[in-house]
Nucleic acid binder design. Structure first.
Lengths: 125, 125
DNA sequence: TTATGTACATACAATAAAGTGCGTACAAAT
DNA sequence: ATTTGTACGCACTTTATTGTATGTACATAA
């Protein structure tokens, strides 16, 4: 749980307060959220499908990040109420509109060889 | 210091390995780096100027993030070798080219009222 | 002569994020 | 009768990030 009054939390809050970029990052930052969104860009996924399509993500992380994305309105969940359980995740209109932004970053990263730069510095022999 | 072999670190590494978006985020993620880059978009700044222009950033954070950005090739530093010290920070071509991406995010965030959404969820009365 | 400003460095503490290892309930397949 | 699969929940530990409190060296201003 977060400490509401830590300098840490307050700093983050003030930054998001007047910057769309910081606000965006606050909601989709972290290791997994963008990957989840990116995976959902073309079609909806069931929970386990999503898990299989994202290497190394644990169930805890997937559940946690998904529910946060749902709360924040980027992803929507359809629960079929069946047993065994079946759920389906897809992007909301907000999430879909964000794909254009991601594609922009993607293209920029490719034309600037960002993977190469990152690997050179942070290692991946 | 980072633990090279933690699952944590390995996961991050594998994600950046083949995704320009993850690679980009790895280099400019965190609380302060984008703000620093954003501040430098129009002109170069001296160290203390930058500090004054970014509310609440501590000297440790500013120094640390700046040197990381310099290492990664987003920002360049000019040290005048004077006493009292004088240094100047500005964007490299890579950093400058990234401003277009940030503007894109900025515009998207504005038209989608991201600040409003973020504040509604994470509070800022 | 005491204070102020510059651009840092560093030990340490606090906070946040991510990962591990368990358990649930029910159903169908082996 | 035991295993496998689905979609989670939760207590706990490990890592990572951020912040706090100092100190440095020299110079000019009050």
């Amino acid at each position: 749980m977060r400490k509401q009054n830590s300098t840490n939390a307050l700093n983050e809050q003030q930054l998001t307060f007047n910057c769309p970029i910081a606000s965006t990052l606050k909601m989709v930052g972290g290791r997994w959220k963008l990957i989840i969104i990116w995976n959902l860009r073309e079609k909806s996924f069931r929970y386990k499908e999503l898990q299989r399509s994202i290497p190394n993500i644990t169930e805890k992380m997937l559940t946690q990040q998904l529910s946060s994305l749902v709360e924040d309105g980027w992803v929507q969940k359809k629960d079929y109420g069946e047993i065994p359980p079946r759920t389906e995740y897809s992007l909301t209109p907000l999430g879909k509109s964000f794909i254009a932004v991601l594609e922009h970053i993607y293209d920029w990263g490719k034309s600037n060889n960002i993977i190469g730069i990152a690997n050179a510095r942070y290692g991946n022999e």
